[in-house]
């Protein structure tokens, strides 16, 4: 079984490509087709579970969360879908979900995740203090708990987070919510350099990515890049996704 950290260590390209999609949107069928078709381009799939109150998300992902939720997409239906399809067997898959979706019966949920081949979890409202007591439990189920660092995180906390982090680190590149940004800010790049000095663990850039140009400037700076809202916007507007997806993928090579 490939461990996510090993995957970064053994990477043969500049950046791991980590596209993010909200589960079941626009439909399970569409998503399955797209993901399986592109399985060799996706280094890690980040799959979001719709939630009623996604406080870390900007307008595009809020809208999609809401639409998917009222279409009946939830954690249970996503797990069933993963169990039935080849997605998490062919692509290393991590789930992004808000803590309320798993806080009840956490152990049995983690067991389920493992069973259907999920490799890790990203929980945007679970900062270090709440996460650290859960790390042993995640380890027990062989799941990676991905921790965050933000431009506002103070030095002593950065040191603590990188020490405890059981997997790669999710660097929130900007102060704000998810969504595309025109340019990569100087201060975002300075922030990632600051984190780089503190750790050898893989760093992944999240928030704000919309172009291949942006991705290229991140080479050598981080180990992977997450793209979410930019794809979501294409889907939301019924625009063709493949060409754009390929452009961003190629930028990570």
């Amino acid at each position: 079984m490939v461990n996510l950290l090993d995957k970064f260590r053994e990477k043969k390209k500049s950046l791991l490509f980590i596209p993010f999609f909200v589960s079941g949107f626009p439909s399970f069928h569409f998503l399955e087709g797209f993901l399986i078709r592109n399985k060799d381009k996706i280094d890690i799939l980040e799959l979001g579970i719709p939630f009623s109150d996604p406080i870390a998300d900007g307008p595009i992902l809020q809208e999609i969360n809401y639409r998917a939720m009222i279409n009946g997409v939830n954690l249970g239906s996503t797990i069933n879908w993963l169990a039935k399809t080849e997605i998490s067997k062919k692509i290393d898959t991590i789930l992004l979900l808000y803590f309320n979706l798993v806080q009840k019966d956490l152990e049995s949920k983690l067991e389920k995740f493992r069973e259907v081949g999920v490799k890790g979890l990203v929980i945007p409202d679970l900062p270090l203090e709440e996460a650290e007591t859960l790390v042993p439990l995640f380890t027990k189920f062989n799941l990676d708990l991905i921790l965050f660092i933000s431009p506002t995180t103070r030095e002593e906390r950065i040191k603590k987070i990188v020490k405890i982090a059981p997997s790669f680190l999710y660097c929130i590149s900007v102060k704000g919510v998810t969504g595309e940004r025109e340019t990569l800010l100087e201060e975002s790049i300075a922030f990632v350099k600051r984190v780089r000095k503190e750790t050898d663990k893989p760093l992944v850039w999240g928030f704000g990515i919309r172009s291949g140009e942006q991705i290229k400037t991140l080479k050598g700076l981080v180990d992977g890049v997450i793209v979410g809202s930019a794809f979501a916007k294409k889907i939301l507007n019924n625009e063709d996704l493949q060409e754009y997806f390929d452009e961003l993928y190629e930028a990570t090579l």
Binding site: D125, R154, I172
Partner: peptide
């Protein structure tokens, strides 16, 4: 000191908000 009243409370926020809360 962790912001808990028994099992309730805490600080379940995105990392960006931890610093302003501290």
């Amino acid at each position: 000191e962790r912001g808990y009243f028994g099992e309730f409370g805490g600080r379940f926020v995105p990392e960006t908000l931890v610093e302003p809360l501290l």
